[in-house]
């Protein structure tokens, strides 16, 4: 059948629109996963054991199962419970929760990694536990967790392709729609790959800037 890339230009608008949805879903899920991760980490580290138990079980479950399976659960499970969410929202929730668990892991490690001498230094000055956490521990933990959380966000961008299977018309599903009209999978998936690659470059550049800004404060 050979390759014929001349079919691409007609569908450029469709691919660009798909790319925008990919960016939108990535950003929304990233925000959810960031705050969800902080919440989970704080609950697991500081809440009474009994309160944190369901959250720890949830984390354990989500770490040990594939994202695709989780997406099916959330999409069909919500319907089952009578909550009919648009696919986009279900996708954001699924991706966001999945990566919140991974972010929480990183944040917990970052908080624990702050040297005990730092607590002692702050406490001998008379700072309370909360003040120590806010002014001494968290600012140092942030520095340690930004690079690995950035890596998670890059993984999130690529995993956002999975929401095509629950019917979110992002980049992957957009190219599939084009393929169903042209029967040219190689060309369109390659084009989609190129779009992802470019978005990824942009994301990496943005993350590097954030990292640099945080690191200069040393």
């Amino acid at each position: 059948m050979g390759l014929d890339f001349t079919v691409l230009p007609k569908f450029i608008d469709q691919l660009l629109l798909g790319s925008m949805w990919t960016v939108a879903i990535t950003v929304s899920a990233a925000v959810l996963s960031f705050f969800g991760g902080i919440f989970l980490a704080v609950v697991v580290l500081y809440a009474p054991k009994l309160v944190s138990l369901p959250f720890r079980v949830f984390s354990w479950l989500f770490m040990g199962t594939p994202l695709l399976l989780q997406l099916f659960l959330i999409y069909f499970g919500l319907i089952e419970l009578g909550v009919d969410l648009p696919a986009f929202v279900a996708g954001v929730i699924g991706l966001g929760l999945h990566f919140a668990v991974y972010n929480s892991d990183i944040i917990q490690a970052g908080i624990k990694a702050v040297d005990t001498g730092q607590y002692e230094g702050a406490r001998t000055l008379g700072l309370s536990k909360l003040q120590t956490l806010r002014k001494v521990v968290v600012p140092q933990a942030v520095r340690a967790v930004v690079p690995p959380i950035g890596n998670n966000m890059i993984a999130l961008l690529k995993d956002s392709a999975l929401v095509s299977v629950i019917g979110v018309t992002e980049l992957t599903l957009s190219s599939q729609l084009a393929i169903s009209k042209t029967f040219r999978p190689f060309e369109f998936y390659l084009a989609a790959a190129a779009c992802y690659y470019v978005i990824n470059l942009g994301l990496e550049a943005g993350l590097r800037r954030i990292e640099r800004r945080i690191q200069t404060a040393r």
Partner: peptide
């Protein structure tokens, strides 16, 4: 509350400094 108050009156210097690196 009490100990945080008292510690303000007791300065301490450590072997490993414990300066805040950030």
């Amino acid at each position: 509350k009490h100990i945080n108050q008292v510690r303000q009156d007791i300065g301490m210097v450590f072997q490993h400094f414990n300066l805040f690196p950030h």
